[in-house]
């Protein structure tokens, strides 16, 4: 049963916690809306680039371009792991980190690029080669951040340090569901469907190589941007769900503790009445 004052303190502290988790849920849902809007806004741009790349690739069967040549099985990999900067978002970070560790075990020739503080904290303690890390960028999301990351990746890729660049991140499916996605960014993956490919004979200016170079540039920038937005939306959704559960649990706890509190209080009162009554009885005799 416990001490009546102890129970009261516990109820108060759980009530405070509930207030915080509830506020965090609200903040996450506001941020989620923003990230979702970003995803939708980035779609026309990304779709257009993908379509143009598919068109060019379709027309140039024979190519010397590195971005179109698929890697061999024992290739050198740059793995980009996207986690959040903060915790309190359920299994969001741990699933991505687990997937990354699994991948690195299977592919020993892998170097790491780490986006997000949570992943960085884990991997800096591990025996892995971390080339670069980016932390604290989810607070103020803007396109320049993705350009910076994309430039680093491009540089490494085109200097032949790596044969392919893979990304592991959380995809925003819906508020209840986030999927861990493993995706090859470079070279540009083979697309099966040729839907939307333009069959017109395009003239290239200045020439095909320069057009491909510019398209690739833009493609990586927007691909990284899209991944950051997806991950950010998924993080906020995960946090919303986690904080919603925490708030519910706090409510349940408060309920049962209040019941307990009332019982203890009732018992104390009954005790007191018995004492008074038996005292009075003793005097009457």
């Amino acid at each position: 049963m416990g001490n009546i004052r102890d129970i009261k303190t516990r109820i108060d502290s759980i009530r405070n916690t509930r207030q915080i988790t509830n506020a965090m849920k609200m903040v996450a849902s506001a941020k989620l809306r923003k990230a979702q809007k970003g995803i939708i806004n980035a779609r026309p741009y990304a779709d257009n680039i993908n379509r143009m790349l598919a068109t060019i690739k379709f027309k140039t069967k024979e190519t010397h371009q590195k971005i179109f040549i698929q890697p061999k099985s024992d290739a050198k990999t740059a793995l980009v792991v996207v986690t959040a900067d903060r915790g309190l978002c359920g299994s969001f970070n741990s699933f991505v980190i687990k997937a990354a560790i699994q991948y690195m075990n299977d592919h020993p020739k892998t170097d790491l690029f780490c986006i997000g503080k949570k992943g960085f904290d884990i991997f800096k303690k591990k025996d892995v080669k971390m080339i670069k890390s980016y932390t604290g960028l989810f607070n103020e999301m803007n396109f320049n951040v993705s350009i910076e990351i994309a430039n680093d990746l491009k540089q490494h890729f085109f200097m032949n340090k790596y044969d392919h660049i893979e990304v592991i991140y959380n995809e925003f499916k819906n508020i209840m569901q986030q999927n861990v996605i493993h995706k090859q960014v470079l070279p540009i993956p083979d697309v099966e469907e040729l839907e939307g490919v333009s069959l017109l004979d395009f003239l290239y200016e200045p020439d095909e190589d320069e057009v491909i170079e510019e398209l690739t540039n833009k493609y990586i920038n927007v691909e990284i941007w899209r991944i950051l937005l997806e991950s950010s939306a998924a993080e906020q959704a995960a946090r919303m769900t986690a904080m919603d559960n925490a708030t519910d649990n706090a409510t349940d706890l408060i309920e049962s503790l209040t019941l307990n509190y009332n019982m203890v209080r009732q018992a104390a009162i009954t005790n007191e009445i018995i004492e008074i009554a038996s005292g009075a009885e003793a005097q009457n005799q």
Binding site: L203, Y204, E205, P206
Partner: peptide
């Protein structure tokens, strides 16, 4: 402003992609 110089696009221009 194309990479190799400015160009105008009018109605009926040929399919074309430029940096």
């Amino acid at each position: 402003p194309g990479r190799d110089g400015d160009f105008g696009v009018f109605y009926g221009h040929t399919p074309f992609i430029s940096v």
